[in-house]
Design a protein around this nucleic acid. Sequence first.
RNA 1: GGCGACGUAGCCAAGUGGCAAGGCGGGGGUCUGCAAAACCCCUAUUCACCGGUUCGAAUCCGGUCGUCGCCUCCA
Length: 491
Amino acid sequence: MKVWSTLSGKKEDFVPQGNEVKMYICGVTPYAEAHIGHAMSYIIFDVIRRYIKFSGYRLKYVQNVTDIDDKIINRANQQGIEASELAKRYTDSFFEDMDALNILPADVYPRATGEIAKIIEVIRGLIDKGYAYEAKGSVYFRVRQAASYGKLAHRDLESMIAGARIEAGEEKEHPMDFVLWKASKPGEPSWESPWGGGRPGWHIECSAMSLKYLGDTLDIHGGGQDLIFPHHENEIAQSESFTGKEPFARYWLHNGLLQFGEDKMSKSLGNLITIKEALADYSADAIRIFVLSSHYRSPLKYSREALAAAEAGAERLRRVAGRESDGGNEAETIAAEPYRKRFIEAMEDDFNAPQALAAVFDLARDINQAADIGKSFGKAKKTLVELAGGVLGLTMEAKNVFYYEEVAATEIAVTRKRDIYKLIDGVGSELLKEGRNIDTIRGDVNLLIGVREALRKDKEYKLADEIRNKLNSLGIAIEDKSTFPVWRITR
RNA sequence: GGCGACGUAGCCAAGUGGCAAGGCGGGGGUCUGCAAAACCCCUAUUCACCGGUUCGAAUCCGGUCGUCGCCUCCA
């Protein structure tokens, strides 16, 4: 397996320290709803994690929650609630989103506010070793002391200062020094420390948590490209200075950022679409396919067209997964191995999900073809579910698909004589309702299909087609299979 | 200003020296009472532009134009 590491700037052979891969992915600061840029990042690392497990490694996955910081405090003040309450609200919401996107939960979700003791221990160690200093109740990291500062972002201190957008805090020795412990102002959330009341700086929590839960050296540390500098650079400086061990993380993986129109989607630009909004319009599978159809290190542009295309592709995979192998000749079963091989080769090469996905789509076509001509495809379907479901994390659940259940002839006869348009109208008005309940129309739709089947039998195609067309325009698609009709809600 | 990435069909997007993956869309066909779904065929002689290296370049080198990211909170 080859992985591109930001630190070396090239593809490297992936060799973990032991057979349990230690993976740390930067989590969120819960002060607002998570947006689809977050979805992109966490889907990518979910797939990477699933693939590593698929290859036979054990794995421990840690993701932090930065549940205290300036933005949380400010927002909470605006809303007149406690910072902890705001953080909890959005943390809960974040977990809901992750679950809805079929992202496997981390093994540990440490919270900054739950790890104060470890954070203080690390800061104290850094002070003792001369890498940090206290000033007016805050503690800063002394960047000049970390010889290799800038190695991840591939910059040196000089060129960073040349950027000239740095405001030198008067308490800092050097403009690039960053805060490890921030003295709290009156009324702000505060924790006791050797330097007085305060709260942890943003970067230190990740160092403290990864050291605590994964040890001095991680195998994979990941996050969005926007975290390379300063966040991950600072993590390296803190962690390696504290432990005296290099490297802090063997492989640094960073995903490209989601763009919205011409700009990056970000909280500060306010041009974001939340995960919940996206899920209201598109299935989790569609969002995953959208993300995985581009390489993880490349930027990706959000568009309704791209999501709609992904949804159509997702629908095709769902249908394949739902096809039943009606026996067929096992000896003639289609070979799934070539696809599996292609899939693995693609993923082995720096997690080339677009190519892996291409193999999945080709396999899907092969299965459909086999199904159409009555060949057996049980094993191939199993492979499809294993790869697309298990590794790429697609649910492939056909939602809102219903099978016609036979209706008594007498009931059909009675309904045929009465106003079937009324039935259709009833179905339509329920479908258009805000909090519509599909269950309430199932019986009526089923009855309409039963009537339609009777009409077709009697070759009264005009009315039969009218029923189908009317339901279709209401968002109910009917497929007349050779055995029995299937209907689905299309919107 | 410094650092970096990218520019491939109508749209999204792989490929990084040897005949241009995949998805969506579009056109034609098979199946069907007709549809839908599925399947089959077609849909980039060409990879922003210009020049160079090479037997051979979308892929390497130089230049031009354009887009985006980071350098400041951010997945």
